[in-house]
Simulated assay, not measured.
Amino acid sequence: MLKLHLFLTFLLIASLVPAIAHAKRLFRPAVQAHAAIVVDMTTGRTLYSKHADERRPIASLTKLLTAMVVLDSRRSLIKPLRVTDDDVDRLKWSRSRLPVRSLLLRSTLLHIALMSSENRAAFALSRDYPGGRPGFVRAMNRTAKRLHMSRSHFVDPTGLSPHNVSTARDLTRLVRAAYRYPVIRRYSTAHEKLVLGGDGPLMYRNTDPLVHRASWHVGLQKTGFTNEAGHCLIIVTSVRGHPVLIVLLGDPDAQAHFQDAVDLRRWLVASHP
């Protein structure tokens, strides 16, 4: 009788294992970011959201829009541009490796603005625009309006200002548009860039360690941080051959946004066969 009872108990446990495993796969990850959204890039379907419509500062995620405005101007990327004192950050006095008086191609400035969030490069590109930096910012807001980013507003090309605001959902509209630009995809996902034209050679590296993970097939990315915005991340990755966009805003520390992205992708792989 005891053996029969043990056998029946074993059968019961065995029958529950698949259900438990399935439940674990469906369990939504505990994302640390204040706001987040995950969207299937092919269908536009939202797969995960958290405070996705809450307006927040977005820090250097701004530079994806900056890159679009630069490229939409159709000005030559092989034109040299000199960094001036007007490109120094006087709002937060953020550090820059790019010396004043550096002479670089506009393509190089765009590259390190996207890949390494070089603020001085973004400032220089915005200054070298018809109508100067004010004209550039107006173009940013026009582009945002065209993309139906109705809860977004921009006052500078870098994201240093806390008045550059958006929502996780609005940013999906920005990314879907930016993803159509091969230059933005290429520069934002490059691993490193050797820069000449300042006091000496400078090696810039990507601020996002996830681009080095071959299995992620990262198609576009951007990181960002200010005290007001917290740690932010946009990344387009591949899940079972489908491009998926992850937006994270307001993570609490320097690794949390990357861990959130890892947890979300792991959950997607498990729960969306």
Rank of each mutant, 00 (worst) to 15 (best):
L248H: 14
T172C: 10
L65R: 04
M149I: 06
G200R: 06
P243H: 09
R240N: 10
S73A: 13
S188V: 04
S76Y: 13
L248F: 12
P130K: 14
A59D: 00
R146N: 15
R176V: 00
V218K: 02
L8A: 13
G159S: 04
V244R: 06
D251N: 14
R127M: 03
D72L: 02
R97L: 02
Q259E: 13
T237W: 03
R186L: 05
S161W: 01
I235R: 09
I78R: 12
V236S: 11
I184R: 00
L110P: 12
K63V: 00
H5L: 13
R185A: 11
A256P: 10
H153Q: 02
H217W: 08
T42Q: 13
M41K: 02
L194A: 10
A229T: 04
T223N: 10
G241R: 03
L6F: 14
A36N: 06
T226S: 11
V269W: 05
F123A: 13
N119Q: 09
M149G: 15
P57L: 04
V244L: 03
L220N: 06
N119F: 08
L12S: 15
H231I: 00
S49V: 01
L248C: 13
F258P: 07
P18K: 08
L105D: 11
S96M: 02
N164Q: 00
D87H: 06
T226Y: 05
T42K: 12
G200Q: 08
T46K: 15
F154A: 07
V211R: 06
H212Y: 14
F27I: 00
L268H: 07
L6W: 10
R185I: 05
T46A: 15
V247H: 09
T84G: 15
L98A: 15
V244E: 04
Y187R: 08
A256D: 09
A229M: 02
V269G: 05
N119W: 03
F123R: 06
F123C: 09
F225M: 06
V175R: 01
V183A: 15
R55G: 03
F225C: 03
L109Q: 07
S166L: 02
R120E: 13
R106T: 06
H272W: 07
G250Y: 07
E54V: 01
L114D: 12
T226L: 03
A122S: 14
S126V: 00
V100N: 01
R95Y: 14
L147C: 12
R75V: 10
S76W: 13
V262C: 03
F7T: 05
T158Y: 01
R240Y: 13
P130Y: 15
P182K: 05
P134Q: 06
V218I: 05
D253E: 09
V39S: 10
R205I: 03
T167Q: 01
D208Y: 01
S116L: 03
F154Y: 14
I13W: 11
T189H: 08
A23G: 15
N206F: 01
T237A: 11
R180M: 05
L248N: 14
F27S: 11
W267Y: 07
R169C: 07
